[in-house]
Amino acid sequence: MSRMNAMFKKLYKLVLVVSLAIFLFIVFDEIHNLDNNSKRYLSEHYISEGVQETGAINIVTSVLYDYRAFDTLGEATVLLTAAAILSFLVPLGKDKMLGTTFTMIVSQTTKFFIPFLAVLGAYLILFGHLAPGGGFVGGVVMAVIPILLTITYRVEFSEYKFKPAKKKLAEDIGAIGFILLGLVGVVTGSNFLANGQANFGPGNTGELISAGLIPFLNLMIGIKVGAGLAIIFNSLIKEK
């Protein structure tokens, strides 16, 4: 009887998932079949006018850091909060992987690798408005450096090189810097997070220092995301 019960429980979950999937499929299909191609004026505007209005060649960057920069501020804050919740919730315990000792090759390669990662991360952040990349992506690449240190040389070494307090400080500075850059728009008489409207102008599109505030906002988000992810990773696998 109990076996029947257990099977029924499993089956019931399966049926629930499948029926939800079918339902969503029908909804998506219905929506797809509606002729709504005429209603794309917002995205068409971003694509056709984005470069002239913001000066950023990368459309994603122009949406993330100019048209909808306010959302980016919110998302970065969510990341900070998530990092903090993880440090509360994850129980401190010993992880098996950390007990593993690696051979010479791994530690030497890691050492060799880190400068390149730093350069790649810096490039992704600083050229975010010109090439694929941006603050979020670059920040993730930067965060790989302490993560690699943690994996190969244990948490203690990683936290000795990058002090947790310093990482928290970097995170806060990134966030404050983003808001202060936004306030520059207010100071010059325009609105919060204004860029082109506050006469920071697109500049010479294609140069490193162009697109007004966007490269600086990218830098701030890069700092914040990098520090935040490093904190998240270390608090996830902390050993005691």
């Binding site: 306010f70 959302d71 919110g74 998302e75 969510v78 909060t81 919740i85 509360f88 919730l89």
Partner: peptide, 29 residues
Amino acid sequence: NLYVFLEVSSLSSCALVALKNTNKGIEGT
């Protein structure tokens, strides 16, 4: 934007529930 700020408020609210770091608090979180 409404969704983003909803996430900000509900995630920080989660963190506040866990603040006392007791078993019951973490279960609630």
